[in-house]
Every structure is written in C-alpha cells, then in structure tokens.
C-alpha cells in the first residue's frame, strides 16, 4: 500500500475519533444560554412575562432588552396572548393600556389591542367624563326602525338634557335579532350577550343551517353618563359569541351591536329583584342572532 493512502486512512480515523469525542463524549456545554435559545414553550412564557412586567413598570428600555433577538412572530403572539390573559383575569385598565401599547409597538394586532391601547383611539372607560353622543332613540323602551330624533323618554331616571341628539340620516338595516332573553337576579348585576350566526352546511347531500357563536364583534352599552364596549369571544369557555358587562343597579342601558349609532337593539333596566333574602338586581342574558347567513 502506498504511503499517502496510509496517511489518508489515519486522517479519516483520526477525524472520526476527534468528532466523536467533540460531539458525543465531551461536547461544548451551554450553561450560559440566552432567552432565544430556550424551547418555544419557555420563550413564549418569557415574552408573556415581559409583557406583564411592562404593564407593571412601563420600562420600555428594559423591555426591549428582554425581547432582543427573539423572533418577531413569537413576540407578537406572546404579547397578544399576555394581553388577553390579562383581560380575562381582570387586570386594571391602566396596566392593560400599557400592555396593549407594547403589543401595538411590536405591530401585534387583535381586538383587545385595539380596545385597550392607551394612545387615545381605543379604550373607552365608562366615567362621567366620557359621555358618548347617542341617538335620540336611546331612552326609548322599544327599538325604533329609524333614527329620527324623537321626543325624550318620559322615564324619570334619565335626564334628556344629558343627551347629545345626533340623528342618523341613513341608519343601516337591522342585522341582528334577539332570539332569547333570560333574566336572573344577582348581587352584582351583569348584562351578557351571546351572539350567534347561522352557517349553511351540507351533510350527506342535505343542506341546513348550523348556529355558531360569532366572535370579534363589538357589543356596546350606552347610558346617560357614559358608554362601555366589549368584544365577543374573549371568554372562549362561555362561547365564541359571548361578551358581558358589569352594570350598576337602577340604571337603564341601551344595547348596540357593532356600532353605537342608530337605534339600539334594545334597552335593559337593572331594577331590584323581589326577594327577601338579600338585595339582588336584574341581570340579563340575551341571545342575539345575526340575520346574515354565512356560506362556507
């Protein structure tokens, strides 16, 4: 055998031995890893905790460092998830506002971000200072098919002088109907809406309609001193079309779907329940169906 072949055999054997030692027996140890090297589950948690921390401290520089070199898509998803968790767990609006702003800064998009972002185009806080203009039908007990300015309601609890009459000349056709109303009595009254839509389905050649929850739709409550809104679908355990509000006793609320303009879908009064055990108030669960049928 020629000499250079022997050298080459030695080289190959040595290379194999060297790689085996370096990759298997004694590999480089990474004990000083950085967040973007963690498994996806922990990366996601790191991003979510960073969002909560920013909601707490508002320290953007430290937040940037914490998110440095993490994939953009994961950051957006993590910030969105954190905000939705925060909404579900009842985190204060000021913290939600910061978290939403952070998510927006990283180009994340979701209904919660649109609502809670604190740059002035989103969150609506129901305070006396945030009185919303409402249509002239706001105080009427029954929905009106038009939004023509009508005389104020004689209901003594609502002062007509508090309303800004904004007539809507071309109100959209009603696209939602109430299919069921459940009244219960609770110590802390709530108004809940379960929004549904019908989807045409074909099973074994036969077509039919299937009712499904309708997510990502704005539900508005307006009352003389203010307004509040919620987005359906933020409590998936309650259904994709579910949204609810805590409301105050002895007030009348006008319910709108999608937009707080035109005639309200209905109005609901939180009056006292006639029980002797404890003070409870009317709570309402409305099932509302979209008249539009969705084709797959």
């Amino acid at each position: 055998m020629r000499t250079h072949w022997i050298v080459l055999i030695g080289l190959a054997l040595g290379l194999a031995l060297g790689l085996y030692y370096a990759w298997v027996i004694n590999p480089v140890q990474y004990y000083d890893s950085v967040p973007n090297q963690m498994v996806p589950r922990y990366r996601s948690r790191w991003i979510q905790m960073t969002a909560f921390a920013y909601g707490h401290t508002g320290d953007i520089e430290r937040t940037r460092l914490r998110l440095h070199r993490l994939p953009d898509g994961e950051i957006r998803q993590g910030l969105t998830d954190a905000l939705e968790t925060a909404v579900e767990t009842g985190v204060p609006p000021s913290t939600l506002g910061k978290m939403a702003s952070l998510a927006k800064r990283y180009d994340a998009q979701s209904p919660a971000i649109a609502i809670y972002t604190d740059d002035g185009d989103g969150m609506v806080v129901p305070t006396a200072e945030t009185t919303m203009p409402v249509s002239g039908t706001a105080a009427l007990p029954e929905p009106s098919p038009t939004a023509t300015s009508l005389p104020p309601s004689p209901t003594p609890t609502i002062n007509p002088a508090q309303f800004s009459i904004v007539p809507t000349l071309t109100p959209p056709a009603p696209s939602y109907v109430i299919t069921n109303v459940v009244r219960t009595c609770l110590p802390e009254p709530r108004i809940a809406v379960s929004l549904t839509q019908q989807v045409s389905v074909t099973v074994r050649g036969e077509s039919g309609l299937e009712t499904q929850g309708k997510p990502n739709v704005e539900i508005w409550l307006l009352w003389p001193e203010g307004a509040d809104r919620a987005i359906t679908g933020f409590r998936p355990s309650q259904g994709l079309g579910y949204a609810d509000f805590y409301v105050e006793p002895m007030k009348t609320y006008n319910l709108y779907i999608e937009s707080p303009t035109g005639a309200p879908l209905t109005d609901l009064t939180v009056d006292p329940c006639e029980t002797q055990e404890e003070t409870t108030w009317s709570s309402w669960l409305l099932t509302v169906r979209s008249t539009e049928v969705i084709s797959p």
């Binding site: 050298v7 080289l11 190959a12 290379l15 194999a16 060297g18 590999p27 090297q37």
Partner: peptide, 28 residues
C-alpha cells in the same frame, strides 16, 4: 505513517467539533 494522519485527523475533528460546528443547544 498512520500516526501523523491519525493525529492530524483527531486535531481536525476537535477543531470542527468544538470550534467550527460545535453542538448547539437551541432547546434550553
């Protein structure tokens, strides 16, 4: 002549395994 080849091969293997293409941990 096998020995210098072997030594060079081991050196090259370690260079690749530890420096050029070390084991990387992305799932820490």
């Amino acid at each position: 002549w096998l020995l210098p080849g072997l030594a060079a091969g081991v050196g090259l293997g370690l260079l690749i395994g530890w420096v050029i293409a070390p084991v990387t941990y992305y799932d820490t």
